[in-house]
Amino acid sequence: MSTEKKRRNPVITNDNFTLLDLLDRLLYKGVVVRGDLTISVADVDLIYLQLSVLLTSVAKFQESCASSPFSPGIAKEALL
């Protein structure tokens, strides 16, 4: 199996996907099928704006508690 290879590789990781990865696919603005009701482009922009605020605060939180025993990995997972 390639699992071992993945673990030993420093550059490439095959983590579980994040909410950002998921939304990048589910909210893609290209025309797939237009429903009677769909999320508008403006709403998609707003979602990304909010997501960026969320990610920024996660990054700040990680920075601020880098030296504490609190694991930033857990915090990130809880938020995403």
Partner: peptide, 19 residues
Amino acid sequence: ILDWGKTYPPEAGMTIRLT
């Protein structure tokens, strides 16, 4: 992809993620 990624040193400031 994984094999190929090994040719990139981590200090290049670039990581490749596979999902």
